[in-house]
Design a protein around this nucleic acid. Structure first.
Lengths: 290, 290
DNA sequence: TGGCGGCGATAAGTTGCCCTTATGATAACC
DNA sequence: GGTTATCATAAGGGCAACTTATCGCCGCCA
């Protein structure tokens, strides 16, 4: 069987034209090199060189040398590839975030992360939880920030923070009492379109299986709040979204007596090679999210 | 250090997606394969795959796999190259022959050689001894047929036959006595141009250092004989050339009282990988030359 | 939820390869 | 013919890699 060692020795021998010097260059003894060359020739079934006062490659040896050197070059490139990948490992991080968290959390953590991990090459994908889970499973994401629990055994879950949902109503309704879940069920509740976990969480708070009345589905919390401001109904938004979303909307924000909550956390594949780094990073995100 | 063994194991593992099966395919035990993969990852400094319920290559692993497979393919091609070369080894034979032997000897031996060595791919080069020796030395010829001795320590010499030189004179002189070397010196001796060993051998027979009178230099024995036929002088030719060269020339052939001789032999590099085959071939040539 | 099966990692012992030093063989040179 | 240079061969030792046996972990199932 041909080995890389044999090819390296043969390369050295061809370059040096001398067993002794080739052995020295290869940092082994001359007999060791001789043996390996011999074994290579035996494996090939054809002599690579003529032994004599002045050793010379056979025609086959010349041909073989060229190809062997090409192979050795490629093997060395494998190490380069590894080094690049190793650096990229701590460098590239493909992060998925659910839409009801991304716009409010990311501004806080991106700056912090690039401080604590200056060589971090952050790729962010914003989509709904089922897609994030699938992409994580397939290895197209390294980690994701979603609402816990996910209860997927192959994933690690690291809680980041817990947030309350607040009630959003037209400014005109600001003096009315805050409704409870049951009263809410009778109101015109604006929700995100199907697929968003936040929709399910809101429905769950109202103890509704599915939307009983026709609910206008928005594609973002921003849209929902603007619609509330226009008097089209009421909605719930996560606490964290309040500063951003109410800045330019004529809405009233109220807290529920019994506040609905959800836990946001970071998840990643238990078997991910980045597992260790992801632990660190989740810590950094948790700190930044406060 | 990366080894081909590791690459082969990794290739098997990637194909099988399963340590046990990959080990089986590789004809080793599962721990042995695990260890080699581990060492490969350590050598690279980056994980190639995620261990888990269902093992999966990392992005780096995928990239690495493609390059590793390319390398393995090339290494396998090295063996193919060797096999081809091994067959060519008994096949191709680059033979050099001096011009004063080639036209007379080759017809006799080529047929015989292709009989005894049917897979012989004979390449013939005809030129003067110094060039043949240089090309043999440089490995551009495998063997050569020249006049012995060559006295080059790095060459093996195998005598083929000994031949006499005969005297060639115009048919009109046929009844004159055959001159001795001294008388020859006074005649108009036609010789081959500088470089041919046969020229030197003829001069040596006449005990002349260099051509004392202006000698017409011919480029072939054929030319010399034709010139003798035209009455321009006399010459010497090897015995073997007589049947061919005197067929169409009006010349007389005479033998010297004390016949000059030369030994023709085959030579090759002592260190040639073909040394064994060349011994056989020289035997075949010797038999054919009789 | 506790047992079970599959899978890969780990441990311990053995084999075998490869390297070392020492020596031999051969050719070139004086 | 002795000497030197060079590569091959021989013998012994160390280490890497393989083997069997076992563990640990996860997922599955009753």
């Amino acid at each position: 069987m041909i080995t890389l060692k044999q090819l390296r020795y043969f390369d050295a021998l061809a370059r040096q034209g001398h067993f002794g010097r080739a052995a020295e260059v290869s940092a082994i003894s001359q007999p060791a090199l001789s043996m390996q060359i011999r074994e290579l020739e035996e494996a090939l079934g054809a002599p690579l060189l003529e032994r004599g006062r002045q050793m010379r490659l056979t025609a086959f040896g010349e041909e073989f040398l060229a190809k062997a050197q090409a192979i050795l070059r490629q093997v060395d490139e494998l190490s380069d590839l590894a080094r690049a990948a190793r650096e990229r490992l701590v460098g590239r991080l493909r992060l998925g975030v659910i839409p009801t968290v991304a716009p409010y959390l990311l501004p806080r953590i991106v700056g912090r992360l690039t401080e604590t991990h200056p060589d971090l090459d952050l790729h962010i994908r914003e989509t709904v939880t089922p897609k994030l889970l699938a992409e994580l499973e397939e290895g197209r994401l390294d980690t994701a920030i979603v609402a816990l629990p996910v209860s997927e055994p192959s994933f690690i879950e690291a809680p980041l923070f817990t947030e309350s949902f607040v009630f959003v109503r037209p400014l005109a309704d600001a003096l009315l009492p805050v409704p409870g879940p049951e009263a809410l069920r009778e109101m015109r509740l604006l929700l995100l379109e199907e697929g968003h976990c936040f929709r399910d969480q809101a429905l769950s708070f109202c103890r509704m299986e599915r939307s009983p009345r026709e609910l206008l589905d928005g594609s973002s919390l921003s849209t929902l709040v603007q619609m509330v401001g226009a008097g089209l109904g009421v909605t719930l938004i996560p606490e964290m979204a309040v500063p951003v979303e109410t800045r330019s909307a004529r809405v009233d924000i109220a807290r529920f007596a019994v506040e609905p909550k959800r836990t946001i956390g970071m998840i990643w594949r238990r078997a991910s090679p980045l597992a260790r780094q992801l632990g660190e990073i989740s810590e950094a995100v948790r700190a930044a999210a406060q």
